[in-house]
Design a protein around this nucleic acid. Sequence first.
DNA 1: CGTAGGTTTGACCGCCTTCAAACTTGGTGG
DNA 2: CCACCAAGTTTGAAGGCGGTCAAACCTACG
Lengths: 239, 239
Amino acid sequence: MREEERPGIRRLPLFREMSEQTFGTLMDVSYAQNFPPLLDLFSQGQNADFLHVLIEGTVELHSDWHGRETVMGVVQPVSAFIIAACVRDGAYLMSARTLERSRIVLIPADDLRHSMRRDADFAMAAMDEMARGYRVMVRHAKNMKLRNARERLAAWVLRESTHLGGAAGFVLPVEKRRLASYLGITAESLSRSIRSLREDGVRIDGARVTITDPARLTALAGPDPLIDDPEPDDRHPPG
Amino acid sequence: MREEERPGIRRLPLFREMSEQTFGTLMDVSYAQNFPPLLDLFSQGQNADFLHVLIEGTVELHSDWHGRETVMGVVQPVSAFIIAACVRDGAYLMSARTLERSRIVLIPADDLRHSMRRDADFAMAAMDEMARGYRVMVRHAKNMKLRNARERLAAWVLRESTHLGGAAGFVLPVEKRRLASYLGITAESLSRSIRSLREDGVRIDGARVTITDPARLTALAGPDPLIDDPEPDDRHPPG
DNA sequence: CGTAGGTTTGACCGCCTTCAAACTTGGTGG
DNA sequence: CCACCAAGTTTGAAGGCGGTCAAACCTACG
């Protein structure tokens, strides 16, 4: 991997607190790789061999069962994914594919576990990262079970807007069919929900989203910090 | 807490590998308490102050939003719950209530974090526990998004049967309305699904479940290790 | 430009919910 | 021990949300 990429990884909450030595040895056994769009990185059921760190690009995590597929999450740089399967030395519960051209650092799972064992700071960071992932998934499950499709879409728009600093307008970061799958509905259903939400404060033309009536939209979405707030990346800001 | 309860806790994967000293100090600052049935232990939104360890009884984890409620999980002894909120020092994303008379050990969250920091064996065990919880929740979300109500019920029956050593008959461990909520449907829907599954290999009379046609039931449920298999409690069996 | 793939729309259907009432169960006190 | 009450469960009727299938439309890209 390229020398100039290390600082970016080092800045991640997961790698920030560990000793210089642990970081060095871990980087030495890892390698980075470029992948074209829509490439399968791994499939559910395989044994977890590498912790993945997305340096640039976008990766989708999805699961399949009996010919049905659902998007479980979308990973943006810079962040690590599937750390739980590595820690447990188990099979992936999800598959991963690139959505854009992506650059990914692969860290061998057994070196990872070894480093955690030796470096308490790293272990604590990994623990926090794992707890974060757990809570993200709890929020996802709550969202599915407590809201209907229109409410989930409304809440997603609101969340995305908030994430972008309260922008009233933005561009969809993924294809609609993938958003639909993430929201647990079909592409057709999403299309109809989008149309019906024009009455409720959002207008979506193509990939352009505009919040026309924030109050109305908020009333429908019923935003809740225990479902919608992002889990903070980090509880120990640097410095 | 009672002296004779320590061995049971000590035997838990989470506490098994830690040093005798860490375990001792942790137990010294903890206390056990008995709770009557249907008592709220904590509510979502509160800050996580204690790791809970269920010694005996049953505890339900549930979440609420805008007057709707859903059961996220049921805890059986002996096991720890809500470790992620403690590690992150965040708000509970779920509420907990006892279903039966229960005995619970309460471990202060900051002592917990402190002990992890000092005892690498404990940190590794906590990490594994966290990864386990994450993967349980991934399975739950996949189940909700990939299966319809009848399939979820069928899969649940099969899973429960397998968990009990392959028993063809067993008794429902929780009320039907709670099972319904866990499965993401209404009590009425569950009742109708139960009736319709009589044609597909399960008979449920009151709380008594009988699998009459395993092949038929399996065909409907489409059991999948990446959704239905239990996460092993432990990757480091004692001895 | 042409084509493949994504999106929208329409028609239809079925799963699941809602609301209401009857029925069953379990716990409590007379 | 039985009567009673509250709570859980089942059943019915009706409706809506979201799914499926099919075709038309749009868009990106070679």
